[in-house]
Design a protein around this nucleic acid. Structure first.
Lengths: 118, 118
DNA sequence: CAGTATCCTGTGAGATACTG
DNA sequence: CAGTATCTCACAGGATACTG
């Protein structure tokens, strides 16, 4: 049996999370849903530049991972709400750790990057 | 002036970090260097499956961001050592937060994913 | 040893248009 | 409103071979 969380395993489950939060749009969706549920078009408007196709794909992936819940109301016109699950909410903590690091250190990264360009 | 760390800004600097730690190989390199400096070939061997081209690219990116330092010795045969900078070392903390979350919650994610497949 | 140099491919993602 | 359906493309990443 494998070490359950060997960082050097390509199939290490923690990479699942890293890839998810590293991808182009997931973080925007999670951030948008962090305070309240939102509807499809609300998300689309809030997250400037995302296309409906990509938003759908992102939401599907987050649902598949149990981070976001979808709730459809049988109304006319249709209404669908997305919200973070408890699991999704719990992910906000490590995300905030990254955020805190970024706030403290990104200036240095940008400096280093500028120096590297020169 | 923009909010310095508006998660909804496409150019939000914290995305820099998320993309970096979310990419295919950076985390392996950082993990490999977390305890001690390593040479190119040591890294290549430790991180199974990475090609020299990609390892070079990854190291370059990490150097450009000031997370990894490269030190070449004028010897024959050539010797080069890579190590985490203090900045790179400090990144281990938020990374461990993610890791801790993953250890606690990835099983649920995998369950959700399995349920989604069915 | 520590990389370069080429070539190649899959797929994440965008543009655009359409529908129950 | 809440998505689908196509089409297209760039580019991250891989395979393989070579070099100062």
């Amino acid at each position: 049996m494998d070490e359950p969380f060997d960082v050097f395993g390509v199939d290490c489950p923690s990479r699942v999370i890293l890839q998810r939060i590293g991808d182009r749009w997931s973080m925007f969706v999670i951030a948008a849903l962090s305070t309240r549920p939102m509807r499809f078009t609300q998300l689309k408007n809030r997250i400037g530049g995302i296309t409906p196709k990509v938003l759908t794909e992102t939401l599907r992936a987050l649902q598949a991972d149990g981070l976001v819940a979808r709730r459809a109301f049988a109304e006319m016109p249709p209404r669908v709400e997305y919200r973070l699950t408890p699991l999704g909410l719990s992910l906000l903590e490590p995300i905030n750790a990254i955020r805190a690091w970024a706030e403290a250190n990104v200036p240095q990264v940008l400096e280093a990057r500028a120096r590297a360009d020169a």
